[in-house]
């Protein structure tokens, strides 16, 4: 059981937490957090895959790591857009809560 696999399992646990957040969140903020944590879990699995792919003098496969960096930035953009929407919604009708 290499350390990469441990973090992959941690990633799976994060995905579980993220799914729980997405399923049970009443408001938009909970869902944003759930999405981020689920994304974090997926990226962690990708990091473990990269670590398992070490070789040719590199401690880890650089391609997944580059993809994860791009993914994190994209996930941040999504969070920022969602929060901007949430703030505007809060300003527009006073209560931040909404029913789907």
């Amino acid at each position: 059981m290499s350390d990469a696999m441990l973090y992959a399992l941690a990633g799976a646990m994060l995905a579980g937490c993220g799914t729980y957040g997405l399923l049970t969140a009443g408001g938009a903020l909970g869902r944003i957090l759930g999405f981020n944590i689920l994304g974090g879990g997926v990226f962690l699995i990708f990091g473990a895959v990269a670590r398992r792919g070490a070789g040719a003098g590199l401690a880890a496969d650089p391609v997944p790591q580059a993809l994860v960096i791009t993914g994190i930035v994209v996930a941040f953009c999504a969070t920022a857009l969602a929060v901007a929407l949430l703030l505007r919604l809060k300003a527009a009708d006073g209560a931040g809560e909404e029913e789907p």
């Binding site: 957090l33 670590r51 960096i69 994190i72 941040f76």
Partner: peptide, 25 residues
Amino acid sequence: LAAPDVALTEIAIGSGISGIVLLRA
């Protein structure tokens, strides 16, 4: 996981600035 670049990005963007944005929300 021997990914220093990703660690930097995760802390700076993933939790730092995302944190500020989410705190405002």
